[in-house]
Write a protein that binds this DNA or RNA. Structure first.
Lengths: 231, 231
DNA sequence: TTTACGCATTGATATTTATCAATCATATCA
DNA sequence: TGATATGATTGATAAATATCAATGCGTAAA
């Protein structure tokens, strides 16, 4: 166990992910060997929709947006990934293509794990497969919630929901401060950039939030929750 | 093998599903024992969102709509399931609740397989877990496509897409005939019933389809494809 | 400094889509 | 047979949302 700790130099990467706890020391070393760490600057593409899925990526530091490239250059952000998270996609085990694009929003450090190594691991370690199944299903639940969010709520509800998501699941600051570009907020809520700006302005005028450039402070979380629920 | 065939009376159920091919005879019998078959009339609920997920269901005959119950009685149909298909949901291995509702659209026969039996099977048979992972990921891909479909296309594109889906994946008739209620078409495309009616009427006026009650004949598939792509 | 660029913002306008209300058709039931 | 329910249809209207065009603003490059 001690040996395990010392043999890998990547403190955050594998040990912090519950999904890897079922691995034997040997298996752990196997993927630790196959691992390679890369740094990305804001705006850089980590993997791109349509390309072959050669690796699964673990976000170690920074912030990554994961989105679908849709019709006529419109993107739909599926989620923002904070450390320590696996980001991959449904191409795993199916067509082995990336069905999503991942782009760094902040200075980001990520570990790449060879997809074949991981595939073999699933064949060998049933607990790992079990955990992965569980993990994927959790994301499917989130997708279903997002379906309702995007198709059954008006713009106000969607923006409020997105702001709460950013606060609760991404930035998690006690000062209720989040940072997001207008276009990203629009891509997160499936609306035009101009619309997202306008809704934001309305919320500001009602003193529910305050805005300073890309930084937004959420003053009245209860109101946002209410707006989000109302639709 | 022969023994396998005779020991189960449910010809369609387990043998026709590729996902069960990795089971040993013993495992096969185990879930075959735990299986129980039920008939449903049109409109009857097979499982209901929010309830405990006690079984996984296999559709043997008929047609089932699987949907999310959303906000203020609006539903979003995720897919229509024809035999022979497993229908379940992401509650499996997570919170063991149904996150979807399944309702029979036609006279339907379905097999219920105890969820614990299935969970154990995954722990025991790694190939099964592997196949299941693959199967789930395929559905996630479909979900992503649906995201784009619903959030980035106009009503015409969505209706055209839905009609093509019904033709290609549900009814699969050589005479291009499909059957669907207006409300279901609306729930499939995230729009109001009235809107779905109007778009349908436009398509009819352009002689792209013809409509007779709940039966729709798709005359010009190319046009529908074009409309679907255009958005 | 100037230029250029990427974003944010705003107003005007057009388009899309939902809602409401009424009517019609059809099937089922007592 | 009428009574009643369910779903389809239509038109009028309102509400939601996108688009387009112009402007501002701050930062990074020349």
């Amino acid at each position: 166990m001690d040996e395990k700790k010392t043999s890998k130099h990547c403190g955050a990467c594998l040990t912090k992910l519950p999904i890897f706890t079922s691995l034997t020391d040997e298996q752990f070393e196997l993927i630790n060997e196959a691992r390679c760490r890369v740094k990305f600057r804001p705006g850089e593409v980590i993997f791109k929709q349509g390309t072959a899925m050669t690796h699964i990526v673990i976000v170690n530091e920074g912030l990554v947006k994961i989105y679908i490239e849709g019709i006529s250059n419109r993107n739909l952000i599926i989620r923002l990934a904070r450390p320590v998270t696996i980001i991959g996609g449904p191409g795993f085990l199916t067509d082995f293509k990336n069905h999503l694009t991942a782009v760094a929003l902040e200075e980001t450090s990520a570990c790449f794990i060879d997809i074949n190594t991981l595939t073999n691991l699933i064949k060998v370690n049933k607990d790992f497969a079990f955990d992965l199944l569980k993990w994927i299903n959790e994301h499917v639940v989130e997708n279903y919630i997002k379906f309702v969010e995007l198709t059954q709520k008006g713009m106000h509800g969607r923006i409020a929901g997105a702001l709460l998501y950013l606060h609760e699941s991404v930035f998690m600051n006690s000062n209720n401060k989040i940072t997001i570009k207008r276009q990203d907020l629009a891509d997160l809520t499936a609306m035009s950039k101009e619309s997202s700006i306008r809704i934001l302005k309305e919320l500001k005028d009602e003193n529910i939030i305050s805005v300073d450039g890309n930084t937004i402070i959420l003053h009245k979380l209860e109101n946002l929750t209410q707006i989000s629920l109302r639709g």
